[in-house]
Design a protein around this nucleic acid. Sequence first.
DNA 1: CAGCTTGTTCACAACGGCTTCACGACTCGG
DNA 2: CCGAGTCGTGAAGCCGTTGTGAACAAGCTG
Lengths: 115, 115
Amino acid sequence: MAVGTSELPENITIGPLEITPDEHLARLDGHTLTLSLRELRLLTELARHADRIVAREQLFELVWERPMRPGDRSVDVYVRKLRVKLETALPGWSFIHTHFGFGYRLSAETRQPVA
Amino acid sequence: MAVGTSELPENITIGPLEITPDEHLARLDGHTLTLSLRELRLLTELARHADRIVAREQLFELVWERPMRPGDRSVDVYVRKLRVKLETALPGWSFIHTHFGFGYRLSAETRQPVA
DNA sequence: CAGCTTGTTCACAACGGCTTCACGACTCGG
DNA sequence: CCGAGTCGTGAAGCCGTTGTGAACAAGCTG
């Protein structure tokens, strides 16, 4: 596979979460998620920076490909949408973690021990 | 693998759905479906890409073997016809899933937990 | 030719996605 | 414990996409 020409989005696995940006597809626990374009792109960017905090502004620019206007809440709104869909598809796990004043971080964590 | 021209269609099984393109035949839950040529070909192409999203245009070109004109709704209409026949033959399951802005995806899912 | 099936196209209804706003809950420094 | 700023959340409005029923044309069969 040629690497480096232009950043090809590749498959990403974060615990039970698998993302295949090429195919506009994300699966959780084997179950295909129904995501809108923005939702998928946001999830993809979070996943590409898994376990690291991504600043809200950086996240916006990666997904929306334009600078974020001050006070724009779009990222929050889409984080919410993703959280709902992820929680629905796989209850008991949490993926998107808020870092107050900084941004968000993606990592697969079980809220309860997997009993 | 060469793609497209001379590939012999093979039998495909997607959950309770079995397709035998050779015999222009599709069975659902043991029940033989009555499909027109277009319907069968559409279903077959969806099945060949099971669990993946097939873009509307790609689907059209696979089935109609000519480029899709902008605004052509044929795929939608035939998806509808297939959905009706599939639902009639096996209520409670859904097979053809819409991915807004991209296309369709075939996978066997029960709407209600199989209690 | 009459009747049926298939395929195509259209028009309108219904739905989904994106953006923005409003308000309440929360966090943190002091 | 307070206040300012940040985040969570639900909903409205607009618009493009998809769902749906039906009309119409073409071909086949008896």
